[in-house]
Design a protein around this nucleic acid. Sequence first.
DNA 1: CCGGCAATTTGAACCGATTCAAAATGCCCG
DNA 2: CGGGCATTTTGAATCGGTTCAAATTGCCGG
Lengths: 346, 346
Amino acid sequence: MKRRVTLKDVARYAGVATGTVSMVMNNSPLVAAATRERVLRVIRERGYVYHRAAAQLRKKRTDIVGVSTCDLVNPYFAEVAAGVEQILEEQGRALVLGNARESTVRQARFLATLREYNVEGALVMPAIGTTRAAIEEVISWHIPLVMVTRYVPGVFCDYVGNDNRLGSVLATRHLLDLGHRRIAFIGYNRRTSTGRDRFAGYRAALAGAGVALAAELVVECAASRQAGFDAVTRLFAASRPPSAIVCFNDLLAFGAMLGLQHRGVAIGGECSVVGADDIAESALWTPALTTVAVDAEGIGRAAAHVLWQRLEDPGRSPTRQTLTPKLVVRTSSGTAPRPRLKGRTA
Amino acid sequence: MKRRVTLKDVARYAGVATGTVSMVMNNSPLVAAATRERVLRVIRERGYVYHRAAAQLRKKRTDIVGVSTCDLVNPYFAEVAAGVEQILEEQGRALVLGNARESTVRQARFLATLREYNVEGALVMPAIGTTRAAIEEVISWHIPLVMVTRYVPGVFCDYVGNDNRLGSVLATRHLLDLGHRRIAFIGYNRRTSTGRDRFAGYRAALAGAGVALAAELVVECAASRQAGFDAVTRLFAASRPPSAIVCFNDLLAFGAMLGLQHRGVAIGGECSVVGADDIAESALWTPALTTVAVDAEGIGRAAAHVLWQRLEDPGRSPTRQTLTPKLVVRTSSGTAPRPRLKGRTA
DNA sequence: CCGGCAATTTGAACCGATTCAAAATGCCCG
DNA sequence: CGGGCATTTTGAATCGGTTCAAATTGCCGG
């Protein structure tokens, strides 16, 4: 077992002091070009490998960033993570990944671990149920934290996400413009900021058009295909079903469309459906889903960028950055059907 | 700025030697229970935080594992990564993530970085075009490496993946059993082991049934929905279209089904379609897709487990572990249509 | 009361980089 | 030729744990 080549060895072979080699490794402009060349040649010849842990002991920088995902199996969060990775890679920082799987316990455990690794900062997609205290604890450790995609109310720190409220406004307004008045909202979840904001946009758009919000048209449920199917079943079992549905996300919309097809309701005709996220399948469904496109990778990239800014200038006040979603109109939404004028003609 | 609480401080406050505190931190059975309690109390009271980089300097273990994904945006690989994360988390190891996005350059750069972090091992999903030399270089650094999902031929190291050959055999045999004889294969890609193995299974199943492989029924193309659509267009433009299609994966199958619907070909009747992977959408399509289910998370978990075994016993000979996929029959596949007996009746 | 053995505890050297005050070197100008 | 200044280089102290040979403590049987 050969001993590892250390910086000291390099210094000896190159005939310089350890400090000089260190400066070469850190691209210091103070070393003379000729010296730098000589040192670099020795490094190459001897196969020297920089030892980051040793460096970290004295230097304060670690070039490590922690990333906590709430659910990596969900393609949306995986895309956000991919965006984050892209920027961190460009910055030459390493990414330590944790997947909370929507468990605040796992999330807390991961964040505590990050502390032992002396990460420079953390990008957190808060798991459902994350408390203000949990986030503030991390900040109290002096680890710069950026909330991504979801935020925890009342926490004073950076946030990058989608403008979910606007997204729902666009979706709902689109339906209102098509003449719809009985518009349902399915997938309301008050436990995440995304859930609350998307609902708030729906509510605001209705109010803006002078349409009263009908409690029986709001369905609180999970964000799965099955839940969408069930929600439609429930809505259409009632006396006055909606003529359009705003869905919390595309998965729910798919379930809803299946439910409508199952009942023989014409999608885009008798009942319109709008989703959110614009995942890959949305364009391929029959009918193609009208949805609010969210740039998940862009959010990840922006979040990594915001963390970088904070590291550059720790004093700056927290930013709250939202990317603007845009409505993609396809065939699952159409003009409102004429109301059947029951009895009125009599 | 308060100075950080070090192990030495803990030792002083607890009235013991640094060595003792170190042993407590490492759960050594040598410290007396009473001493351990006292030290732990001081640690809690003073808010001591273990400094892994410092520990690493002397200890050889790092508890860090590198994970290189070939494409994190692909839900399949994201699932594998999630499986890996789950096991590493249980083992108390940190996961440093890299996303090669199918670039061998990015992959190589990431693997080189891992060396500087002194990772205990690496789990690599080789990017398209990964050479034997690239993998062997990592091994030459004495970093235990496990290839996941894809393998590079000729490399003598651990591998965990799906039995793709078997999967295609199951799919093809299923179609043969339904009476099909003109069976196409779309999405052949000879640049990944998955591509080669899935094609090999198709070829073997045909041979086993005494059916000649028709070159015009094999389409080499990307693994996207669009490619599936285009492949069908091509196959059905020819004189004798297939009565069934084995697709490299589900995405391709969706594209193919859209293509068939577009041409007015009855899926499961006039032409059957079988996919592979069984992603979430597959069960929801109309018709529901018959496919070969692959346990992506299971593969990730198994891979992390294999790495653990190798760390426990570096001397063991490399394993080559494949999980068994299983056929999920749904409605996109049906009995072969009667051949139209052109002219024969005359 | 003592020798012997097992169970604990000690603490100084060490891991491999970074730091920075001080020294060395080179160059220009009077 | 020497002083002054800018450019490079030096190297010992330091970061915060781990190690392990050696010392200490406790207990038991004789």
